[in-house]
Design a protein around this nucleic acid. Structure first.
Lengths: 336, 336
DNA sequence: CTGAAAGCGCTTACAG
DNA sequence: CTGAAAGCGCTTACAG
């Protein structure tokens, strides 16, 4: 029904091999035949069947995206859709399509990965988060399927990954606060099983240490999810101990919850608050919520780049991870 | 390298035809052979190659998603990611994978559709928005490729689509406001070339008419994009004429901009404000911003359902569109 | 530079 | 109920 390579071959009076070579443009073909083939292609309106190509080439030219199941901020945070955009735009340019899947828990994630990899529906996988003891990473390493992780994995050896420099980003935030005479700087985190959380906490501690401020565990609190409710509760816990003069949170939703808790007791005008991700809500509830923009779109682009690079060059890849710049969005002019 | 149907056939001592039949489970096979085949499958760890199946079946089992290029709220509004979730979860259950693409303008959208359809990479297309004079719809109708539109298209004949009842949703909002003694109800809209906008405006007018309130065009303003800035400017325009006692906006971002403009002049405590989409920011800036939740996830699910139904049953489909319920989120208790 | 042939890994009409 | 064979639409090693 649809026009195939045979029709083109017949019309151009060549073999299908020749047509194929003209299409893939990787063999010497006389300019004469080439012209004839192109003309036939044009008059017939021929377009190669991608599926047949995939089968013959043993490569789908598709990357598979696993959306994490447990992300409270999946729908409140432009992070993921920006990631997806960065991935898609780059992949498209390189001739890859993107498949994605939502899953409701880790087991379903594995199931989807299996579906993708068993059936060879995708050439490689992009994981959008890495957890401690990440089962998906473990599985993908086991079956030795190409994949890349957004977020530095626990054991980054021989794994492709992209991430921000979370340690330094938080280090800089806290250093800035200290520079502005803040002494009682609270830290609110979540998902302690993510490297991101650990790195940010480490950066926080290091900045204190560098300025001779003793680390006070009671000024820190960590919960399990990136939600406003969680931030609210964690802040309340800290407030039972004392009032901080600045609050850093590893996510804007946490920061917004913290602000809510603070406001119930204090005027927050003298408390600096800094979150991460620069979500749209950060501008609203409390106009002075500064935030670290993690450049999600670039993270996505870089993830796609690393993975495609690997698919094209196999094991002679030069670089196996990329660190993406963050950008401090200062809504308080607190660094003067 | 990978284990194929041949290996299974050999081990089970049957033909590949038989293995294939066992897998697809649509022919009578003696339970004896079936058992032998399953055992071979298990011991070999066999998984059918999806690409080969696709080629033989002439169907990719993939749906293609075209993300609209001109959406200001693509990244500020959970609408799209919720749509994508609804689509993915349903499609997965039915054995379809999802491909998506971002594009930077309408021409690129067409290019992507061409890429998807020419190469048979997808069995059907899901458009996430419909515009007046929509080129994508026009093109897909021309080439007669299966597709479904989220948002009622201009000429819905012979097109699959899902949408909310925008007319009634706005009708109900305005009726509620009138019931609460509001008389000067402003209307702020954007993207007048979308049916959604027209329907909401029509619902607004009808509610006024039903209650004997004359339609005053100077209380309405329409711009071109769903952005806060746009809402701000449109509200200012209306305010030059008079102060309304209620404002309806076709999008929460517009509503937030309107609130900003209002606040510059008035205390807004006596002005009811209602937007659409129930974005997370709606809760923040102005805690009394009520909003109509359009149930994006269900929209996505239904879109996938219609399209897959069409792919499976061809032209004997029973229903070619679905209307998804909206839900009024009343943050002001204005309907008592 | 070009073609005939085999192959990618499945499915299915046909025959038995 | 089962198998041999042709076919889905490409690619590519081999031979010339």
């Amino acid at each position: 029904m649809a026009v195939t390579i045979k029709d083109v071959a017949k019309l151009a009076n060549v073999s299908t091999s020749t047509v194929s070579r003209v299409i893939s443009n990787n063999s010497k073909i006389s300019s004469d035949t080439k012209a004839r083939v192109f003309e036939a292609i044009k008059t017939l309106g021929y377009h190669p069947n991608e599926i047949a190509r995939s089968l013959a080439n043993n490569s789908a030219n598709v990357l598979g995206l696993i959306l994490p199941n447990n992300e409270n901020d999946l729908f409140n945070n432009p992070f993921f859709i920006l990631l997806m955009k960065g991935i898609s735009v780059y992949a498209q340019k390189k001739g890859y399509n993107i498949m994605y899947s939502f899953s409701k828990d880790e087991n379903e994630e594995i199931d989807i990965i299996k579906k993708y990899t068993y059936g060879k529906a995708v050439d490689g996988i992009i994981l959008l988060r890495s957890n401690q003891n990440d089962k998906c990473i473990k599985y993908l390493k086991e079956i030795d399927y190409p994949f890349v992780v957004v977020g530095r994995p626990e054991n980054p050896e021989n794994i492709l990954w992209v991430d921000n420099d979370n340690y330094n980003a938080m280090f800089n935030v806290v250093s800035g606060l200290i520079y502005n005479e803040k002494k009682q700087i609270a830290f609110i985190g979540a998902s302690t099983d993510m490297n991101m959380s650990k790195d940010r906490l480490a950066g926080y501690k290091k900045a204190l240490e560098n300025h001779g401020i003793p680390f006070d565990e009671r000024l820190t609190a960590e919960g399990n999810e990136f939600s406003e409710q969680n931030g609210y509760e964690l802040m309340q816990k800290i407030l039972k101990y004392k009032k901080p003069d600045a609050v850093t949170a590893t996510d804007d939703l946490l920061a917004l919850g913290a602000i809510k808790a603070l406001k119930e007791i204090y005027s927050v005008n003298d408390i600096s608050i800094v979150g991460f991700n620069n979500i749209p809500q950060a501008e609203y509830k409390y106009s002075r919520l500064s935030s670290v923009d993690i450049n999600s779109e670039e993270l996505g682009k870089s993830a796609a780049k690393l993975l495609i690079n690997k698919l094209l060059r196999g094991n002679e890849i030069l670089v196996n991870h990329l660190i993406i710049e963050t950008r401090f969005v200062d809504r308080e002019n607190f660094i003067t």
